Simulated scan of single mutants.
Amino acid sequence: MTPVSSHSPLRTVQVLGGGNAASSAHVRSLAAGLVARGVRVTVCAPVEADHTYDFTGVGADHVHVPRSSDPGSVAALRAACTGADLVHAHGLHASFRTVLALSGRRTPLIVTWHDRARADGPRAHFLRVLERRVVKAATVVLGTTSALVDRARRTGARDARLA
């Protein structure tokens, strides 16, 4: 008889927003590495991203989460993150929706900023509000450049690191 483990494997949820090429390829690579180490991985992204990057092909589960403009996206994320040991969101909009989805939960949140969202006028103010909300909720903020790490620290991140 095979011994039964006293604990289930670690479960992580990777959250993509619009699924730009850099972050989608990064998530596919992360998912492959985590699955190879016995971690259960769920990738939350629009269905088109799974068709293009084949997250399921590397052993991850895929949960369709509509783009940020869809009001059902936060509810879909909340359901997908239930029972996760760690959630990792990629990009500002995906991170903000994940913060909303995890509201009231103690699930650790890692956020990766792959690039800086740019805007002028009222939209620039709105993006700064999103950034502040995300960095205050995140356990760790990873930036792909030192400028992004510095921005996260200036915005109030408790722990910001270069990724």
Rank of each mutant, 00 (worst) to 15 (best):
2 T>H: 09
2 T>P: 09
3 P>F: 06
3 P>Y: 01
5 S>M: 07
5 S>Q: 10
5 S>I: 00
8 S>E: 08
9 P>Y: 03
9 P>I: 05
9 P>T: 07
10 L>T: 15
10 L>Y: 07
11 R>T: 12
15 V>K: 05
18 G>M: 06
18 G>I: 04
18 G>N: 14
19 G>S: 08
20 N>M: 00
20 N>H: 06
21 A>T: 09
21 A>W: 02
22 A>K: 00
22 A>C: 00
25 A>W: 00
26 H>E: 02
26 H>V: 08
27 V>W: 02
29 S>L: 13
29 S>V: 06
31 A>V: 07
32 A>C: 05
34 L>K: 14
35 V>H: 07
35 V>K: 08
36 A>T: 07
36 A>D: 15
36 A>N: 10
38 G>S: 12
39 V>K: 13
39 V>F: 08
39 V>S: 10
41 V>M: 07
43 V>G: 04
43 V>Q: 01
44 C>P: 14
45 A>T: 07
45 A>Q: 10
45 A>P: 11
46 P>H: 15
49 A>P: 03
49 A>W: 02
51 H>T: 11
52 T>S: 09
52 T>H: 13
53 Y>A: 04
54 D>M: 01
55 F>G: 02
55 F>Y: 15
56 T>K: 06
56 T>F: 01
56 T>G: 12
57 G>H: 12
59 G>L: 02
60 A>P: 13
60 A>K: 13
61 D>N: 10
62 H>S: 14
63 V>C: 14
64 H>M: 06
65 V>R: 12
65 V>K: 11
65 V>Y: 10
67 R>H: 15
68 S>E: 12
69 S>D: 13
72 G>Y: 05
74 V>L: 05
77 L>D: 11
77 L>V: 11
77 L>P: 12
84 A>P: 06
85 D>W: 11
87 V>E: 13
87 V>P: 14
87 V>R: 14
89 A>I: 04
90 H>T: 07
92 L>V: 14
93 H>C: 00
93 H>W: 02
94 A>E: 03
95 S>T: 06
99 V>D: 00
100 L>W: 01
101 A>N: 06
101 A>I: 06
102 L>P: 01
102 L>M: 05
103 S>T: 13
104 G>R: 00
107 T>Y: 01
108 P>A: 01
108 P>Q: 00
109 L>K: 05
110 I>C: 03
110 I>H: 03
113 W>K: 02
114 H>F: 04
114 H>R: 05
115 D>N: 12
115 D>W: 00
117 A>R: 02
117 A>Q: 01
118 R>N: 12
120 D>S: 12
121 G>P: 10
122 P>N: 06
124 A>E: 08
128 R>E: 15
128 R>H: 12
130 L>D: 09
132 R>F: 05
132 R>P: 10
134 V>D: 01
135 V>M: 03
136 K>W: 04
137 A>G: 04
138 A>K: 02
138 A>N: 05
138 A>W: 05
138 A>F: 09
140 V>Y: 01
140 V>K: 00
141 V>P: 03
141 V>Y: 03
143 G>H: 11
144 T>R: 07
146 S>A: 10
148 L>G: 03
149 V>R: 08
151 R>T: 10
151 R>M: 08
152 A>Y: 04
152 A>G: 08
153 R>P: 04
153 R>M: 10
153 R>E: 13
154 R>Y: 01
155 T>I: 03
156 G>N: 11
159 D>N: 14
162 L>V: 02
163 A>Y: 11
163 A>I: 05
